[in-house]
Each structure stands twice: as structure tokens, then as C-alpha cells.
């Protein structure tokens, strides 16, 4: 992956929340990944994996008591972590845009669709009402909203969930961003509407040449839309690979566990193999690998020491002792058998 042009490189990002007078909860703990230009990176993980906090950290939208503690967020050679709030405002909605999970609540209920999209043009391009209205209509047309001249004066509650998510996309893409962060953009939508929205994001990406970070819990969405994928567990990336590699040959026991526990609509499965136990609570993280308590292969080494995220060739990265020379368990261990 080093040879490609990356629009964004996140290196060892750490975001923590300090509650009850200094007690620290490490929501994002050393996250590293690259977003190649013009491509889609999927960040996949279950609730509490830190994937949404990672996304908000990129735009530095972490509210108190949260804080970006360390690491680098490199946007085309500039480290966003060092930027001032004022400089970040020029990037938000302009170079990097974001759409969210809940189209129902992510739009302001007291302003019309037009007013809300127009605001982006006003902030970043200084356009007045008349100049921007034309652009807003164009944008609404682009995201497939029928009769945009009428919709522009409607309030969010007058639109369906799918239409609202289109409005969110129109708003995010208004200033032609280079990177779009989509945080679970279809989770709240029905499958047939999800298909429309995913299709739309893909089409717009081809047309506008932007890069996308797709944050999701749904491995199906990853397979359908992403080029690269980072699997997160307990605030860390445990596996980073090209999408085809990941689904053909998943390596981390957690990734494999996820795939085996997923009920699929395209094939009959005799049984689901769940991952045993539950995600450890953030204030009681294991000392070693955070997946060790649930991992069928874990040894003492795993329980006591945290493995590094290591490159194992082909741009693939794994955070697991099994793939290191230090592995002290069964040397023939097969994590995944197709």
C-alpha cells in the first residue's frame, strides 16, 4: 500500500474520554490505516469498537470530556491533530465531509432542506442566497431527488428516510469534498432503500473522484462497496487488507469469528458459530490482546502481551501473535478453513 497515493493516513490515533474526574476510557487506542486516493476504505466493527469515534476524531469533532490524546491524522501531508479549531472549520464540509447514521435526526427540524444545504455554500464559498439556490437544486438533482425545486422548500419531516439521507449526501457533497466519511449511512434504512443509497454513493464517487471512508457493522456492505477494509475491535485495528483478500482469506481470529457467526441470506448454513463471551467493558480491558478472552486460540502470550499491528506482505496488516515468530501455541494452527 506504500506505493499508492493516500489522501489520508491515520497513524497511532488515540482518543480517550475522561469521566468522573480523570478516569480514562480509551475509545480509540492506537488506530492506524490509510485511505488510498479515489478508493473506499471500510471500517468495520461491532458496537464499542471505536469506529465512530475514529471517524469523529478525523474531523476533530470530539466533544468534552473526550480528547484526542495522540497520533497523527495526515491529510495530504498536513497533520490535522495540530490544526486550530478555526483551520478545522475550513476543512469540515469542504475538504472532508461526513454523513451520519440517522437521517431522521441528523437534519435540523426547524429549517428547510434548501436552507440547510445553502449554509454549506455560504460558509465555504461565500455564496449568497440567489447564487446558491441554483447550486442546491443541481445538487438535489444529482442525488436523485425528484422535483428538487419543490423539495428545496420542504422541511425534513416531510421527507422519507431514504430522501433525507439523500439530502444529507447532497449537503455533504455540496462543496465537492475530497474525502467523504459515511458513518453507518444505511443502518437505519430498509434494504431496498439501502441498495439505492449505496448505489448512489458509488456512482457519485465515480463521478466526483472522491475517496470514501465507509463505517459499518455490516460485512455485506463492506464486501459490496469497499476496496480496502480495516477491522476494528476494542479501539484497535486488528486486520487491514484489500477487501477481496479479507473475504477470501481472513486471518485474524476475530474477523474469522465474525464471518462464521453471520447468518447469510445467500447460502444455507447448518449452524452459526458464535464468538463466545462478550466484548470486555472499556474500563476493564485485558492487559494483552483485547480479543484473547474470547479467542479460541489464545495462549498465555496473548493474555499477557498486546501484539503489534504488523505488515505481513501484500499490504496486509494483522494484530495477532499467531502470525509472528513469537507464537507459542500450535505452530500448525489454522484460523480459517474455507
Amino acid at each position: 500500500m506504500g506505493s499508492e497515493n493516500n489522501i489520508l493516513r491515520v497513524n497511532n490515533l488515540q482518543t480517550s474520554f475522561f469521566i468522573d474526574g480523570g478516569h480514562e476510557i480509551k475509545a480509540v487506542d492506537g488506530v492506524t490505516f490509510d485511505v488510498p486516493e479515489g478508493k473506499t476504505l471500510g471500517i468495520v466493527g461491532e458496537s464499542g469498537s471505536g469506529k465512530s469515534i475514529t471517524a469523529l476524531s478525523i474531523l476533530k469533532l470530539i466533544d468534552s470530556p473526550g480528547k484526542i490524546k495522540g497520533g497523527e491524522i495526515n491529510l495530504k501531508g498536513e497533520n490535522l491533530v495540530d490544526k486550530t479549531e478555526k483551520a478545522m472549520r475550513k476543512i469540515r464540509g469542504n475538504t472532508i465531509s461526513m454523513i451520519f447514521q440517522e437521517p431522521m435526526t441528523s437534519l435540523n427540524p426547524t429549517y428547510t432542506v434548501g436552507q440547510q444545504i445553502r449554509e454549506s455554500y455560504k460558509i465555504h464559498q461565500g455564496l449568497g442566497k440567489r447564487e446558491s439556490t441554483e447550486k442546491v437544486i443541481e445538487m438535489l438533482k444529482l442525488v436523485g431527488i425528484p422535483s428538487p425545486e419543490k423539495r428545496i422548500n420542504q422541511y425534513p419531516f416531510e421527507l422519507s428516510g431514504g430522501m433525507r439521507q439523500r439530502v444529507m449526501i447532497a449537503m455533504a457533497l455540496a462543496c465537492n469534498p475530497e474525502l467523504l466519511i459515511a458513518d453507518e449511512p444505511t443502518t437505519a434504512l430498509d434494504v431496498t432503500i439501502q441498495a439505492q443509497i449505496l448505489e448512489l454513493i458509488k456512482e457519485l464517487q465515480d463521478e466526483l473522484g472522491m475517496s470514501v471512508i465507509m463505517i459499518t457493522h455490516d460485512l455485506g456492505v463492506v464486501a459490496e462497496t469497499c476496496d480496502f477494509v480495516a477491522v476494528m475491535y476494542c479501539g484497535k485495528v486488528v486486520e487491514y487488507a484489500e477487501v477481496k483478500t479479507l473475504f477470501k482469506n481472513p486471518r485474524h481470529p476475530y474477523t474469522v469469528g465474525l464471518l462464521k457467526s453471520l447468518p447469510r441470506s445467500d447460502i444455507d448454513q447448518l449452524e452459526l458459530i458464535p464468538i463466545k463471551g462478550t466484548v470486555p467493558s472499556p474500563d476493564n480491558m485485558p492487559e494483552g490482546c483485547s480479543f484473547a478472552p474470547r479467542c479460541p486460540f489464545a495462549t498465555e502470550l496473548c493474555h499477557d502481551h498486546l501484539p503489534d499491528l504488523l505488515e505481513i506482505g501484500d499490504g496486509e496488516q494483522i494484530r495477532c501473535w499467531i502470525y509472528t515468530d513469537d507464537w507459542d501455541g500450535d505452530p500448525e494452527v489454522k484460523v480459517y478453513e474455507p
Binding site: 431496498t192 432503500i193 448505489e199 464486501a223 473475504f247 453471520l262
Partner: peptide, 25 residues
């Protein structure tokens, strides 16, 4: 048919023909 074809499949190589329905319910 449309409903079944709209579900994303967790298999990057087995991408299938999708029927994308227009409009809302």
C-alpha cells in the same frame, strides 16, 4: 426478488445482479 437481491452479501467475489427498486414505499 428485489428484496433478496438488495441484501449486501459478505463475499467480495460473489457480487451479483441487483435489482434496485425506485422510489419509496
Amino acid at each position: 426478488k428485489a428484496l433478496l437481491s438488495a441484501i449486501p452479501i459478505p463475499d467480495a467475489e460473489k457480487r451479483k445482479e441487483r435489482i434496485i427498486l425506485r422510489g419509496d414505499v
